[in-house]
Design a protein around this nucleic acid. Structure first.
Lengths: 156, 156
DNA sequence: ATTGAAAATATGACATC
DNA sequence: GATGTCATATTTTCAAT
C-alpha cells in the first residue's frame, strides 16, 4: 500500500528558514532569526514543527565527486529476464557503490539507475563485470551525461 | 575546455569526518572530535583543507517533496531540432522549477532531464504546456519513476 | 595536533500576547 | 498556537605552542 503523506502548509517565514538552510545547512539559526526578524527560539520551534511534519528529511554535506576523480555520470536502463527476482537485483545494485540512484520505472526498462564512474573504461567495467553479471539482468542501455547544467531541489 | 580538477588524497580521519557530515551536516565538530579521538580544532583545520580542495561543495537541508504533494518523479529525454539553440532551451528549462536536473547526453537525446510533479496530470501539463512548447524542442520521451529504491552520494 | 579562552550559538524553561 | 526573554550548556573560532 502506498505511504500516505499529509501535505502541510508553510508560511513565508517557514519558506525563508527553509531556503536559507537548503542553501547552507550550517547557517546559524540566530543568523536566520536576524534576517527574518523574529527570535531564535521562534525559528527553533518552527524547525521542530517542520521536522515533525517530515518536510525536512535531514541535511547533507555535498561532496564534489570530480575531486575524487569521478568524472563520468551515466544513466543506465536495465532490462530484466521475465523470471528475474527484482528485489535480489536491487540488492546486488546496492552493493555497487558507484550506483547512486535506482528507480522502478514505467516504459521499456525494469530498472533505471544513475551512476558515477571514474572514466569510460571504469564505466565499461561497471557495466560488464558488475551490472550485467547480476543474475536476472538481460541487457542494459546507457546514456552518458556529458555535462550537467541544472542540479537543484524542488523550489519552495 | 574541460575544467581541470586536481584529485586529492584523504586519510581515514578525513573519511570519518566526511561520513559524519554527509549523513548530517549539522553534526557538531566537537562531537566528531570525540568520536574520532582528536581535538575539535584539528577537525576544524581538516575541514578547511577539504573546503579549499573543493572536495566539499557545500551543505544542504534535504526537503521531502512528498510532504509538499510532489509524488511523481520522471526522467524526460528531449529531442531538439537541428537548428535549435541548446543554450536557449536550457535557459527555458531553468525557468521551470519542477525541472531538477538537466544533462547534455550521448545517445538519442539532446538533453535529458529529471523532474518532479504533483501527479500525472501535472506531469502532462508540464510536458505539453511547458516543455514541448519551448522553441527548438521536437519531441520528448518519458520515463516515470514508480519507486526510488536507492538514493545516495558517492561512497567515501 | 593541542590547549585554552573569548565570542557566538543552541536549547530549554517560563512568561506573554 | 506562536513568539519573546532570559539563563545555561555547548560549540565555534582563533591564537599561541
Amino acid at each position: 500500500m502506498p505511504k500516505k503523506q499529509k501535505t502541510i502548509t508553510i508560511d513565508g517565514i517557514d519558506k525563508k528558514i527553509l531556503r536559507a538552510l537548503m542553501q547552507d545547512a550550517r547557517t546559524p539559526i540566530l543568523e536566520i532569526a536576524r534576517n527574518v526578524g523574529i527570535s531564535g527560539a521562534a525559528i527553533h520551534q518552527r524547525l521542530r514543527k517542520l521536522e515533525k511534519a517530515k518536510l525536512i528529511s535531514g541535511s547533507k554535506f555535498i561532496i564534489n565527486p570530480e575531486v575524487l576523480g569521478y568524472s563520468t555520470m551515466a544513466f543506465i536502463g536495465i532490462y530484466l529476464d521475465k523470471t528475474a527476482n527484482t528485489t535480489d537485483v536491487v540488492r546486488a545494485l546496492k552493493r555497487i557503490p558507484e550506483v547512486l540512484e535506482c528507480h522502478y520505472t514505467t516504459g521499456h526498462y525494469s530498472l533505471f539507475i544513475k551512476l558515477l564512474s571514474l572514466n569510460n573504461t571504469h564505466l565499461m567495467h561497471l557495466l560488464h563485470e558488475k551490472i550485467q553479471s547480476i543474475s536476472g539482468v538481460q541487457r542494459t542501455e546507457s546514456l552518458i551525461s556529458l555535462d550537467q547544467v541544472i542540479d537543484r531541489q524542488i523550489h519552495i
